[in-house]
């Protein structure tokens, strides 16, 4: 091993390598053995992959848009995220779900320092940086400078809340509804919401134009 496992090498974590890497071969070999022994079938594998690929930040966007347009729903979402999300027809794994609301004086951001817990079954695959050693190491200790690397410059009148997702809870940020969207439909609002705004590495949502609008 190198002498550098606390600095440079930790930043070098590609999200995926060639399937010919040693680790990938272990996985492929294990998969074949488990399928041959009848522990699961390729059809079951397909179904799991399809379900996971079906999840995306767009689902988070729909939940956020509902909360923006229905104050009672928002109250339920903040009180018990899992129940309120299931109310909209989404299936969640059996964890508690905590939704954290941004406001003028609070900015929330999510991390899992010990592994990379992420609400995959709702929001899809987590971004590579979320799993990176640098993000996991630094966001708890220097959230403001990490957020600045994402383009989020927080002034001193905004407090940061970092949520370290370490056990059986999953998190999502409820971003602020942008100004100038007062007459927008829920559907159109949902499209404004980005993956990073749900994690908290984006604060201000950009107004997308209507199709055909200049």
């Amino acid at each position: 091993m190198t002498d550098h496992d606390h600095d440079h090498s930790r930043t070098l974590q590609p999200d995926h390598a060639e399937p010919t890497s040693e680790g990938a071969r272990v996985g492929l070999a294990l998969r074949e053995l488990l399928i041959e022994a009848g522990h699961y079938t390729p059809e079951e594998e397909q179904a799991v992959i399809a379900a996971m690929q079906d999840a995306s930040p767009a689902d988070g966007g729909r939940i956020v848009a509902r909360a923006w347009t229905d104050p009672e729903y928002k109250a339920r979402l903040l009180a018990n995220g899992a129940t309120a999300i299931r109310e909209l027809g989404y299936e969640l794994e059996p964890y508690e779900f905590t939704v954290m609301e941004n406001d003028d004086v609070t900015h929330n951001v999510i991390v899992c320092t010990l592994c990379s817990c992420y609400p995959r079954s709702l929001l899809g695959m987590s971004p590579a940086w979320y799993k990176s050693a640098s993000y996991r190491a630094r966001i708890v200790r220097e959230p403001r400078s990490v957020l600045a690397e994402f383009g989020v410059e927080l002034t001193a009148d905004v407090n940061v809340r970092v949520h370290d997702s370490t056990a059986e809870l999953r998190y999502m940020v409820l971003p602020q509804k942008p100004d100038g969207t007062e007459d927008w439909s829920e559907e159109r609002l949902a499209e404004l919401v980005t993956r990073d705004s749900l994690i908290g590495t984006q604060r201000v949502l950009k107004l997308a134009r209507k199709p055909g609008e200049s």
Binding site: V105, V140, P143, R144, A156, N159, V160, R161, V162, H163, D164, S165, T166, A167, E168, L169
Partner: peptide, 10 residues
């Protein structure tokens, strides 16, 4: 950062 900055953990 500020005195109001917090970390929340389970």
């Amino acid at each position: 950062g500020t005195d109001g900055d917090k970390l929340e953990i389970e």
